[in-house]
């Protein structure tokens, strides 16, 4: 049971960190989006994700029972303790990069949450059920934007192709399972990584196919692994900004 509990905490932190880091990245568009409408949309998505992160962190904090709450988990852990996938920590780049990043994540996220609604852990199932509605909308939105840029102008298509090319190497990390997830999946608690990967592939092929964007070969081995806390250089910089206040003024509230 202790092993199971440690596995569960680890898995919850992955879900939480994925939502948190993706949300934090998106917030960088605040005040910079190409149009007011897009700014509102991006901030809506970002806040959905931060809300989901809070739910996962709170559950993890209860299981950890070491005095840390959701805020402490988000704002005082070091880079090596973060369990998010490498994809979500990547810089926003241009709008094609942001769009491709969101789409690749949203497809994984929705299929993961859909699987988790059937989790034997009722708390997980309940959080996932709420998140599925939000993620369904996120995927609809980002998928349409992929198509919009994919068959917009010659430049928008070139940018989307470049964005896919730049981000694709991180999809291996996004889709890979490990022993922890495997054990939890066999216990009916976590999503099965292979099943999510297959559903993700089908979604990507459908959306890319709509505008004849080529689907690259599956991403091969990458030397970093977000689940193990081995991140690209971008996460530390993101955390430095995100965690500054709680690091400089521990426990500050306003």
């Amino acid at each position: 049971m202790t092993d199971n509990k440690n596995d569960l905490i680890e898995y919850l932190l992955r879900l939480a960190d994925n939502a948190m880091i993706n949300g934090q990245r998106l917030c960088e568009w605040c005040g910079h989006a190409p149009a007011l409408e897009e700014e509102m949309a991006l901030m809506n998505v970002a806040l959905d994700l931060v809300g989901q992160a809070r739910n996962w962190y709170e559950y993890a904090a209860e299981l950890l029972a070491d005095g840390r709450d959701a805020d402490r988990l988000a704002f005082t852990r070091d880079e090596r303790d973060f369990r998010n996938t490498l994809l979500v920590e990547q810089p926003n780049g241009d709008y094609a990069v942001t769009t491709a990043k969101l789409f690749l994540f949203d497809a994984w996220h929705l299929h993961t949450l859909q699987a988790l609604t059937a989790s034997k852990d009722e708390r997980i199932a309940a959080i996932a059920a709420k998140g599925v509605k939000e993620a369904t909308y996120h995927l609809r939105r980002s998928g349409e934007w992929v198509e919009r840029l994919g068959d917009g102008t010659e430049e928008s298509r070139q940018r989307m192709l470049a964005a896919i090319d730049e981000l694709w190497r991180f999809t291996g990390d996004l889709l890979a399972g490990d022993a922890i997830q495997q054990r939890l999946a066999e216990a009916g608690i976590a999503a099965d990584a292979a099943a999510v990967a297959a559903a993700w592939q089908a979604t990507v092929e459908q959306v890319f196919g709509a505008t004849n964007l080529p689907v690259p070969q599956p991403s091969s081995y990458f030397y970093l692994d977000g689940k193990k806390g081995l991140h690209t250089e971008h996460l530390g910089i993101l955390l430095a900004e995100m965690q500054f206040l709680q690091r400089a003024y521990p426990g500050a509230t306003w």
């Binding site: 409408e37 509102m40 809506n44 349409e144 919009r148």
Partner: peptide, 11 residues
Amino acid sequence: ANMALESARDL
């Protein structure tokens, strides 16, 4: 139109 629907939803 789809983008308009989504922007309208968000706004």
